[in-house]
């Protein structure tokens, strides 16, 4: 496993500082309560936790789809402006996202080829912008693929470009959404539970492909999932969230082999074991309240 880039002293691609998100209501719901972490270039980080712990909210904050109540998101050292009705500057199209629901992650009325083409166009627009600014675009040395080449790369036929999303399975759609996001040559790809709606046999495949393609072009990956057993296969580091807070973080082998926080231990215990005995996984006891303080390695 590669050493986290933190050790090499590189600048983080993304920093989130003390993010707090309240959803309006009486009283307001605090979905995220002071989360901070950073992500380094070429790194794969898994963000895990049970549903409702604030993972997806974090994904929306990081991409700028949601403005946090408090805290800031720094992308390449600069504050990331939240997405408004206006067009997002090519400067920030280096953050892409693959969404959870395969039935709505692609536009049902457009051919998938042209949707992947949009990603390529975004990459071109940003390359032009960064050349103008004197910077170097991510994956500048990598040869540009066409939309149908991208589709072949994710294991579909070149003819798939002319089809509509309805004619693909959930797993195929998530791969197409990944291709579109990665065709934009992002510096950071956020996968918001991209595999949770897929069946077990497809999950590992889509996650692995996502990770492999991202790393090939130097894209950092923030992989959000509730499934530690998949995350540990691809992540360099794991961040465990519980009730809107980070409760544990560390290298994947540390978290997997030596979980310190009782909640992480419970999460690991809840992974079903394929021993064929039909034993149910240990359920996380309902009503248990875990401490929300972080335990570090």
């Amino acid at each position: 496993m590669t050493e986290p880039a933190k050790a090499t002293g590189a600048e983080p691609i993304l920093e989130v500082r003390d993010i707090v998100v309240d959803y309006p209501g009486h009283p307001p719901v605090r979905a995220v309560d002071g989360v901070s972490f950073e992500l380094y270039p070429g790194e794969v980080v898994g963000l895990v936790g049970e549903s409702g712990c604030g993972k997806s909210t974090m994904a929306r904050v990081i991409t700028g789809l949601l403005k946090p109540t408090k805290g800031e998101v720094l992308y390449r050292g600069e504050p990331l402006p939240p997405l408004t009705a206006r067009r997002r500057s090519p400067k920030y199209t280096g953050i892409q996202m693959v969404f959870q629901d395969p039935s709505s992650s692609l536009n049902p009325r457009r051919r998938v080829g042209s949707q992947v083409e949009d990603g390529l166009q975004a990459a071109r627009a940003r390359a032009a912008y960064e050349t103008e600014e004197g910077g170097v675009a991510v994956g500048a040395g990598v040869k540009e693929l066409t939309a149908s080449q991208w589709l072949q790369r994710i294991g579909l036929s070149a003819q798939a470009a002319g089809r509509y999303p309805q004619s693909f399975s959930g797993g195929q759609r998530q791969r197409i959404a990944t291709a579109r996001a990665l065709a934009a040559r992002p510096s950071l790809l956020v996968g918001d539970e991209p595999i949770s709606a897929l069946d077990a046999s497809t999950q590992a495949r889509v996650a692995g492909l996502m990770c492999q393609l991202a790393l090939e072009q130097g894209t950092s990956l923030l992989f959000i999932s509730h499934d530690l057993s998949i995350v540990r296969l691809i992540a360099d580091r794991i961040i465990v969230m519980y009730a809107g807070r980070v409760v544990e973080r560390g290298r994947t082998d540390q978290v997997w082999n030596d979980p310190r926080h009782p909640y992480t231990k419970a999460l690991l215990g809840a992974i079903p074991a394929p021993d064929g005995s039909g034993r149910m996984p240990v359920a996380t006891p309902t009503g248990t309240v875990y401490p929300r303080d972080e335990i570090s390695h």
Binding site: L83, R87, S89, F99, D118
Partner: peptide, 17 residues
């Protein structure tokens, strides 16, 4: 609020597009 609209916006679609 649909995901594909959001991902279009992340790719740098302006409002008209």
């Amino acid at each position: 609020g649909a995901d594909f609209v959001s991902s279009g916006r992340l790719l740098g679609y302006g409002p008209i597009r």
